[in-house]
Simulated assay, not measured.
Amino acid sequence: MNQIFEDLAAIDEELSKRHLVLDPGGYFIIYLDRESGLICAKHFTNAIDERGLAVDPETGEVIPARGKVERTHATEFAGRTAKELCVKIFEETQPSPVTLLDHAAYLGREFVRAEMALVNGQDYVQD
């Protein structure tokens, strides 16, 4: 069983190295609110420049992928389960802040990971 887990982890690790096209609709910072029993997702707007980099729509400054960034989120979503959070973002919010299908799939995966961490009392770190 351990070998299967290692093989699957290696597949995911390799896939995490692929090039990603950024969503012009923005990005999400996902975290857990354990006291309230919620999965939370702050949505931040961005624009994509001619190089394919995410930039602050107000300043035109590149938004770094790593490190602390001081920005104000546009919206915050919360749900008790991954499914509830997906319904709020993709069905109840019109237009949806997510404009790319691969971004939607990524968020679904992350929300499930966050839900499992919440249920199992584990740490959650967004991929």
Rank of each mutant, 00 (worst) to 15 (best):
L22T: 05
G52D: 02
E14T: 04
I39D: 04
L53E: 15
N46C: 15
L15F: 12
R34E: 15
A41T: 08
A47G: 14
F28T: 08
T45N: 08
L15Y: 12
D33T: 05
D49V: 13
Y27G: 06
S36W: 00
H19A: 12
D23N: 09
S16W: 00
F44Y: 15
E14C: 00
L20C: 01
P24A: 05
L15H: 08
L20V: 14
V21W: 01
L32T: 05
G26T: 08
Y27K: 13
V21K: 06
D49A: 06
G25C: 09
L15Q: 13
G52C: 04
R51C: 10
H43I: 08
C40T: 09
Y27M: 10
T45F: 04
N46A: 14
L53R: 15
K17D: 00
P24I: 02
L32A: 09
G25S: 06
E50I: 12
T45D: 14
L32R: 06
I11T: 06
Y31G: 02
P24G: 06
D49P: 11
R34Y: 04
A10Y: 00
G26A: 05
T45V: 10
I30W: 02
F44K: 01
L20P: 00
I48K: 07
E35I: 00
T45H: 01
Y31R: 07
C40Q: 03
L20R: 15
D49R: 09
A47H: 12
L32G: 03
G26M: 06
G25A: 04
H19N: 07
V21D: 07
E13Q: 13
R51D: 15
D23A: 10
D23F: 13
S36Q: 13
F44T: 03
G52Y: 06
I29N: 10
L38W: 06
E35Y: 03
D33H: 08
L38N: 05
G26C: 05
G25W: 07
A10T: 12
D23K: 08
C40R: 09
R18F: 07
R18A: 08
E50H: 14
F44Q: 02
Y27D: 07
H19S: 08
L22V: 11
I29W: 04
H19L: 13
H19P: 14
E50Q: 12
F28A: 10
D23I: 04
L22Q: 08
P24E: 09
E35H: 01
A41L: 04
V21E: 10
E35K: 10
D49C: 12
T45L: 13
F44H: 04
D12R: 14
